[in-house]
Computed example of a mutant assay.
Amino acid sequence: MPDLTIATVARALDGLDARAFATAHNIANLGSPGFLPVRVSFERSLQQALMMAEPSKVRAAPIDAARELPATVGGLRPDLELSLASDTASRFAVLTALADRQFQLHSLALKGVL
Rank of each mutant, 00 (worst) to 15 (best):
P55K: 00
L98E: 02
L110V: 07
N26Q: 12
A28S: 15
R11I: 03
R101P: 01
A66T: 14
T23S: 06
G15Y: 11
F103H: 10
V73F: 07
A60L: 08
E81R: 12
L98T: 14
A85E: 02
A71I: 12
A53N: 08
L30D: 09
P70A: 00
F35K: 05
D64G: 03
A24W: 02
T88M: 03
P33G: 14
T88S: 05
V38K: 14
F92T: 13
A7C: 03
L50T: 03
D87R: 09
S32Q: 15
A109W: 12
F103T: 06
L114W: 13
S86G: 09
G74P: 15
Q102R: 04
A24K: 10
T96G: 01
R91G: 14
L82I: 08
P70G: 01
P62T: 10
P70K: 00
L82Q: 14
L76T: 03
A66I: 13
K111F: 11
L50E: 04
S56T: 03
L95I: 11
D17W: 10
R59N: 04
R101T: 14
V38L: 15
D87C: 03
R39W: 02
P2A: 02
K111A: 15
P62H: 13
P2G: 07
F35G: 06
F42L: 06
S32T: 13
A97L: 10
R101N: 10
R44Y: 03
L80A: 14
L4H: 01
P55E: 04
P78R: 08
L110Q: 11
P2C: 02
D14R: 09
